[in-house]
Simulated assay, not measured.
Amino acid sequence: MMSHRSIGERIFDGANVFFMFLLSVVTLYPFLYVLFASLSDPAWLVKVRGIIWYPEGATLEAYKLVFQNPSILSGYMNTIIYVVAGTSLNILMTSLGAYALSRQNVMWKNPIMFMIVFTMFFNGGLIPTYLLVENMGLVDSRWALILPTAMSAYNLIIMRTAFQAVPVSLEESAKLDGANDFTVLFRIIMPLSMPVIAVMILFYGVYHWNSWFQALIYIRTRDLYPLQLILREILISNSTDSMLTGIGGGDKMPVGETIKYATIIVATVPILCLYPFLQKYFVKGVMIGAIKG
Rank of each mutant, 00 (worst) to 15 (best):
M113P: 01
M113R: 09
F114S: 11
I116N: 13
I116D: 05
M120Y: 12
M120F: 13
N123M: 07
I127A: 11
T129S: 11
Y130A: 04
Y130P: 02
L131S: 06
L132Q: 15
V133K: 01
V133H: 02
N135W: 13
M136L: 15
W143D: 05
L145P: 00
L145T: 01
I146K: 13
I146F: 14
S152C: 09
I157G: 04
I157H: 04
I158R: 11
I158N: 11
R160M: 02
R160N: 02
T161P: 00
S169F: 02
A174V: 03
K175L: 08
K175R: 15
A179N: 12
A179D: 08
A179M: 11
D181F: 08
D181R: 12
R187H: 13
M190C: 11
P191H: 04
P191T: 03
L192R: 14
S193H: 09
P195E: 06
I197R: 01
A198P: 05
I201N: 08
L202M: 08
L202C: 00
F203W: 13
G205C: 07
Y207V: 04
H208W: 06
W209C: 00
W209M: 00
N210R: 09
S211R: 04
S211V: 03
S211G: 11
W212S: 08
Q214I: 08
Y218K: 04
I219A: 00
L227S: 00
L227P: 00
L231T: 02
L231E: 01
E233T: 10
I234S: 09
S237N: 15
S237T: 13
N238Q: 14
S239L: 13
